[in-house]
Nucleic acid binder design. Structure first.
Lengths: 201, 201
DNA sequence: CATTAGTTTCAGAAATTACTGAAATTACAG
DNA sequence: CTGTAATTTCAGTAATTTCTGAAACTAATG
């Protein structure tokens, strides 16, 4: 590995983490190196940096591209391909979430929906089905929130996260205010959803 | 596999998903079976259900326990150990998140903090360090939100998620109201954070 | 259109991870 | 204690995943 100690530490750790999240160690390291590099890098520079085979880098880059985690660049008077990571780190998180949703969450939801259509052949199956219904609803709840929030610009998203559960306080406050003209309390929407669940189960 | 077609479908899919998230196929299947079972199950029942070796189940159960994903039960007049998954499915998500945070996020934060203390030996390192700083801040932002929200009871959490980005609307509304007495707009906290970032970079 | 730089593919090798059966351990009952 | 049921450990094997080098492909260059 021809890397400064700092980047090396980072790359090794990131590779380790990658391997716990379904990405191979080397691909994780490759991403770390690209992420930390001030300039776009070509495949040979990555080979140089990590001491792995050229073909391995080629495959890794291909994988990173399918995850939308790197951008392809071309430098003038150089026909090699250069790669970078997005400048806005939140974009990275968004792309990652988007891709995992597409690959893992959506198929799971679809399978759970299918199962909900079948009719159970035993008491145990009936229970299993109800349980899967719970899981289906939970995933929908989470992805619904995600879809909603995903659209926000980085600035707004950060504001929302910083707020965290303090929203509750503001909601109460809003309730106190809006209750005056006799409108519905804001907990309503959530409770409505919960009730819907029971019909399905 | 001695399972109803419904649970079998579920278990196979869940095993597949598990393997993409750093859990072995079999452990994923084991969890699916436990999750879908109306009654607590003992190790031999899982062996029976999935057709894997007894020792494999033993190890799998141990792993699930280290993740806090199963509860141990004892039935009267039976000294075998029985296992269940929590009734509240949100508890499962919480435990999972908690454990992953402990194992992956916290060490990463700690490493990033260490790197921030070092002094860079080159321009490239300087950039790398700034980049890691961005990552550090992002993770802290996310885990801060998580820590905050994690404490909420299931009901409240669902309400919050259902609200999603609509909070923004309410914030604006709140701003309009609280601006009257001349107090600060609520975007403040987030923007303050962002500025802090730049000092570090 | 031949040469060459750059990239990808792919079959087999290497490394890692998962699984098994046998032996060891634990923990309870008589 | 002794015997037995339940569980765990672990060394070896099987299966899977990752990685490599050689060959094939692609496309720009003179």
């Amino acid at each position: 590995m021809h890397l400064s100690p700092m980047v090396q530490t980072f790359a090794l750790h990131f590779g380790e983490m990658g391997s716990r999240w379904g990405i191979s160690r080397t691909v994780g390291q490759m991403y770390a190196v690209l992420f930390a590099s001030p300039e776009p890098m070509n495949a040979d520079q990555i080979v140089e940096a990590l001491g792995v085979s050229r073909s391995n880098v080629s495959m890794g880059l291909k994988e990173l591209q399918t995850w939308n985690l790197v951008h392809l660049k071309h430098l003038p008077d150089d026909r090699r391909e250069y790669f970078t990571t997005p400048d806005d780190i939140w974009e990275i998180v968004r792309n990652l979430a988007e891709e995992r949703k597409k690959r893992e969450v959506d198929p799971t939801l679809s399978l759970l929906r299918d199962v909900m259509m079948q009719n159970p052949t035993s008491e145990a199956d009936k229970y299993a089905q109800a349980r899967m219904g719970e899981m289906h609803d939970l995933i929908e709840q989470l992805t619904g929130w995600y879809d909603d929030v995903q659209k926000l610009e980085t600035e707004r998203l950060i504001a929302l996260l910083t707020l965290g559960s303090k929203v509750q306080k503001i909601l109460e406050m809003k309730d106190r205010l809006t209750l005056l003209p006799g409108s519905k309390p804001s907990g309503e929407t959530a409770r409505g959803r919960k009730e819907a669940r029971k019909d399905t189960a």
